[in-house]
Design a protein around this nucleic acid. Structure first.
Length: 210
DNA sequence: CTTACGATTCCC
DNA sequence: GGAATCGTAAGG
């Protein structure tokens, strides 16, 4: 197997928006059931500090949010209704920014991912991981992965550099499913990628860079 | 303890 | 457009 290259502490210690943008195209790896699932990150959202009223950090330090105040490069997993959502902790210690992973392009073990999804209706590979709850179900990510070190190959969950670097455009839009600061443009997607969530309307925005 | 509330998803 | 679903956090 090709060597797996982790992202540096310095990568995660930057401003949340910068980390969010640069996580696009990186590979999420999940070790489970003797397999090594891989998915390309194609859609993310930035959740800032306690002043971001739509962020969980707005509640301050609680049992649920404590990992946000810890070292960057770890996972913040929470449950939302019947689903789980995966976040990547950014910013230095005590600064609670994080990046919500909203969609993945599944790279291997498609049948296994399909089996993990409760709805057999999702026969299309494009619909397997195009949503924060969907990708956690497909990759078997739940509270057991709360606080996982994403900068360690020994973790059951970590992030690495892609083997091939394919250039892409980034589109910026408003965040999905929130009611506070709904005008803040902190959702970033790989422009034109078929595996992002949402429809044509929600995926209209400006191109950030070429 | 009780209640309100979602960073969702799927069905009608 | 509407229901299902359940842990969290705040208030009695």
């Amino acid at each position: 197997m090709t060597k797996e290259i982790l992202l540096s502490k310095e990568f995660y210690d930057r401003k949340t928006e910068e980390v969010a943008i640069d996580l696009l195209g990186k590979i999420l790896v999940r070790k489970v059931d003797g397999k090594r699932l891989r998915g390309k990150i194609v859609e993310v959202e930035a959740y800032l500090g306690e002043y971001d009223k739509s962020a969980h950090a707005a509640a301050g330090r609680t049992d649920r949010t404590k990992v946000l105040y810890g070292p960057s490069g770890h996972s913040y997993v929470f449950q939302l209704r019947a689903y789980h959502c995966l976040n990547v902790v950014a910013e230095p210690q005590d600064s609670p920014g994080c990046v919500l992973v909203r969609a993945l392009e599944p790279l291997n073990h498609h049948d296994y991912l399909k089996k993990n999804r409760r709805k057999a209706k999702d026969s299309n590979i494009k619909d397997l991981c195009n949503g924060p709850g969907k990708l956690c179900q497909a990759f078997k990510i739940d509270l057991a992965q709360y606080g996982a070190n994403l900068r360690s190959l020994d973790s059951e969950l970590y992030i690495i550099e892609p083997e091939e670097i394919a250039p892409f455009d980034i589109m910026v839009t408003t965040r999905i499913g929130i009611t506070k600061h709904s005008d803040w443009k902190q959702r970033y997607i790989i422009a034109g990628n078929a595996y992002v969530s949402g429809d044509k309307k929600t995926n209209l925005g400006r191109i950030l860079k070429h």
